[in-house]
């Protein structure tokens, strides 16, 4: 190789060194979490790309344990909010209470003032509570009374939804779902993994606690490097092709998808796909994005951004089916 590309080479080396903590984190989390590598990887992508994660999976898949362990490994503050129908915005963001001794109103901060938030069963709370949380996610600041508080960085919200119980829930509107960078669908562990889970839980000797391996400031540094990861114009075009194919499938010889899609990915989808691809490249210890990175995170970034028509629902076509068709039709650079 010639010296004309020293910038990328240097960046590559820098990222190779800086991203070493990913392996450390994985090793540390592996002490308590068996399997669920995919979910942990997606949490890290959200963390590095300044996004939030919507997680869909049945109860008991170590969602709380994962985010709690991640927060402990990063030495960050963790909060868990169980969303219920009677929850109020003040229960999430905080409120002003009257102090009789001082004869004044003082701010009581809500559980959202933490680095890692687990919003459990977000669809169980009414729309006003959901929007309070989602606004905080977007703006990364909270206003209580007349005072605006910046939320601590890193700030990651992991919201969960249970796919099997829809009765008495408040489905997140499309505009709100779009605020989540990733929607991750997780399944059950394998037989081998579950065997290990049983052993780990029954044997008190194996119960090991997570120790902090990095600091929140390291994550902030890593974010800067993620921003620097090189994305070629060809990759940008590839991302745009994928997103545009969800909007105008007929332009990509996918006429059969036209009646199945009610709306395609928003510009936020393109931005998030690019961000997540960069974060994924960083985690793979590369200083540049390749098409594999885009394809790898495409389903998680796009699945909640492709609206299905009644026809698609009647034919049991999922957004994953549509995205597969698109990825198989769009030319890779």
């Amino acid at each position: 190789m010639e010296n004309t590309s020293t910038d990328i080479r240097q960046l590559n080396e820098k990222i190779h060194q800086a991203s070493a903590f990913v392996d450390l984190l994985n090793m540390e989390l592996g002490k308590v979490i068996v399997g669920q590598r995919y979910m942990v990887e997606r949490l890290l992508i959200g963390l590095l790309a300044q996004g939030h994660v919507l997680l869909e999976g049945v109860p008991g898949l170590a969602k709380t344990l994962s985010i709690k362990s991640l927060s402990s490994a990063i030495n960050a503050k963790f909060s868990r909010i169980q969303f219920t129908p009677d929850l109020l915005p003040a229960d999430v963001i905080g409120t002003m209470i009257y102090n009789q001794q001082k004869n004044e109103f003082v701010v009581r901060r809500g559980p959202i003032f933490a680095n890692f938030i687990l919003a459990d069963e977000i669809n169980r709370a009414p729309a006003k509570v959901q929007s309070a949380l989602l606004e905080a996610m977007q703006e990364r600041q909270i206003t209580i009374g007349d005072t605006t508080f910046k939320l601590d960085e890193p700030f990651l919200v992991l919201a969960t939804q249970n796919p099997i119980e829809q009765e008495g829930t408040y489905t997140l509107p499309e505009a709100q779902v779009d605020r989540f960078m990733l929607k991750v669908v997780i399944g059950y562990p394998t037989k081998e993994e579950e065997k290990l889970i049983i052993r780990q839980n029954l044997n008190p000797d194996t119960n090991s606690s997570i120790r902090p391996v990095i600091q929140p400031s390291d994550i902030l540094e890593a974010r800067k490097l993620v921003r620097e990861v090189y994305m070629d114009e060809k990759i940008e075009k590839y991302i745009l092709d994928i997103v545009f194919a969800t909007r105008h499938p007929e332009d990509y010889k996918l006429n059969k998808l036209k009646p199945l899609i009610s709306y395609g990915g928003s510009p936020r989808a393109s931005i998030n796909l690019a961000w997540a691809a960069k974060a994924y490249a960083f985690m793979k210890r590369r200083g540049y994005v390749i098409p594999e990175d885009v394809r790898n995170i495409c389903f998680d970034v796009m699945r909640h951004r492709v609206g299905l028509t009644y026809e698609a629902e009647a034919e049991n076509v999922t957004s994953e089916n549509i995205l597969s068709e698109i990825l198989n039709a769009v030319e890779v650079p």
Partner: peptide, 15 residues
């Protein structure tokens, strides 16, 4: 080819 296409790396003439 991927390095040349996506990472701005320039292989040598021999390559």
């Amino acid at each position: 080819a991927d390095l040349a296409k996506f990472a701005k790396l320039e292989p040598t003439a021999d390559e």
